[in-house]
Amino acid sequence: MTWDWAMITILVLIIISGIFSLLGAIGLHRFPDVYTRLHAATKTTTFGSIFLAIAVIVYSIFRITEVGPENDGAFITLAAHTFIALLAILITNPTGAHAIARAARKTGIAPEQAVIDEYEEVD
């Protein structure tokens, strides 16, 4: 893999990540109530972060193979830490979304334009 091809791969990954992250932010304004906004925000920003992290990991792997085995390990550390940050986002994002949705429902905010609402208080 030459440098140009690596750059094109990274560019495509970053454009995908940027488009979806921006769509999530716009979705915060397009949707009518807190639940639909959560849909937009959680899914798209998680997806965007995954692609940005994959871009950084591809870049690190390319730098590792380019510089060769006598590099100082900085890019291995970069890739490993990016992977851990990705795991943290993947686990915490949906859990935070549940917490917000549950809090919103408990304060008595009904979903707008709802055609069905089978929610009941349980503990």
Binding site: A41, T42, G48, S49, L52, A103, T107
Partner: peptide, 18 residues
């Protein structure tokens, strides 16, 4: 409402990590 603000805050946090 306050949950709306928390959703926005959560989005900002994820984007900052990115």
């Amino acid at each position: 409402t306050s949950p709306d603000r928390v959703v926005a805050l959560d989005t900002i946090n994820t984007l900052v990590v990115g």
